[in-house]
């Protein structure tokens, strides 16, 4: 048995650099693999609705006639399953996280495709 075994570590952290970063000033760097939030390159999307059917939480809603793609950011668990199943590869995961929001209505993120293009 010994006393004050942690003494050396305490001295080290007393004179060393802090382990944490000053957050708002120094932003965390994300890795290329980081799953932040789901984005849709809407011009590639064909509104097949596969992502909404396979989503484990039902966060995505797709409407083909309205050419609308909608995601509920607070329900999405960023599991990446929609990105994997997307046939057109229009979905992707971004490195940054969804920003905090003060308004609940902002949790829903909607994208519209160009309607005329299809008719032409």
């Amino acid at each position: 048995m010994a006393f004050n075994v942690i003494g050396k570590t305490i001295m080290k952290s007393l004179f060393g650099k802090p382990a944490t970063a000053m957050y708002p000033i120094i932003k965390n760097e994300f890795y290329p693999n980081t799953r932040g939030n789901i984005e849709n390159a809407i011009e590639q999307c064909n509104f097949c609705g596969l992502c909404s059917r396979r989503c484990p939480t039902g966060a995505i809603e797709v409407s083909k006639p309205k050419r609308k793609w909608e995601i509920d950011r607070t329900r999405c668990i960023v599991c990446n399953f929609c990105v994997h199943v997307c046939a057109k590869k229009s979905l992707s995961t971004q490195r940054h996280y969804t920003a905090p929001m003060t308004d609940k209505a902002k949790r829903i993120y909607t994208l519209y495709g160009e309607a005329e293009k299809k008719d032409a």
Binding site: F30, N33, R35, V78, C79, T93
Partner: peptide, 12 residues
């Protein structure tokens, strides 16, 4: 974990 899988606690 974050570097290899993309998540810190939930890896998927």
């Amino acid at each position: 974990f974050e570097e290899t899988t993309g998540g810190r606690v939930i890896f998927s």
